[in-house]
């Protein structure tokens, strides 16, 4: 069974990225992530790779919660999900948090999921492939496609054209 030290470290290091990951689908990502951590605690034996395991559980629960929410109050849930900025507002140089949020929300779901899991979750494409059920090469291709769209929407110049 998982000890409190490891659980605390996982919460500190991955909770925010997991919430960001779950936010793609549902309006209450914190609940989903919290339940995922609580589920992790009672796993016997604990998963060998807890981080990908957490992402998989969060994904399944977030999609399930989104389906339930859609049945009940579709418009309200979508409005709530889109109203929040996904990132901490930045000051000075760097990408604008709201613009990045809008750009991410505009991506196709399969591309957005992979971009979030790789960039902020730190998962490898092999791990993402296991979670999403797609080949790693496909995950990598969708990642590059998502980045390309983000670059266009965020107006980030290509290094060669500088």
């Amino acid at each position: 069974m998982m000890g409190p030290e490891l659980l605390g470290r996982l919460v500190d290091e991955h909770a925010a990225a997991l919430v960001l990951y779950a936010r793609q689908w549902c309006a209450a990502p914190e609940d989903v992530v919290q339940e995922a951590f609580l589920k992790l605690v009672v796993q016997k034996p604990p998963p060998e790779q807890p981080v990908p395991w957490l992402y998989k559980v969060v994904r399944n629960r977030a999609i399930s919660a989104a389906r339930s929410a859609r049945r009940r109050q579709r418009r309200e849930a979508e409005a709530a999900a889109r109203s929040k900025t996904w990132f901490v507002p930045t000051e000075g140089a760097g990408l604008d948090a709201e613009a990045a949020t809008a750009a991410l929300q505009g991506l196709p779901e399969e591309q957005r999921e992979i971009v979030v899991a790789h960039l902020w979750g730190g998962l490898t494409f092999e791990q993402i492939a296991v979670i999403t059920g797609t080949p790693a090469s496909t995950a990598h291709r969708w990642y590059l496609a998502g980045l390309s769209k983000l670059r266009e929407r965020l107006h980030v110049p290509c290094p060669k054209t500088k």
């Binding site: 919460v11 925010a16 919430v19 960001l20 900025t85 990132f87 901490v88 760097g94 971009v115 902020w120």
Partner: peptide, 14 residues
């Protein structure tokens, strides 16, 4: 640049 963006902290009580 994207990775430099910090996801909003989880809003649950640790």
């Amino acid at each position: 640049a994207l990775a430099a963006l910090q996801p909003r902290p989880a809003a649950f009580d640790r």
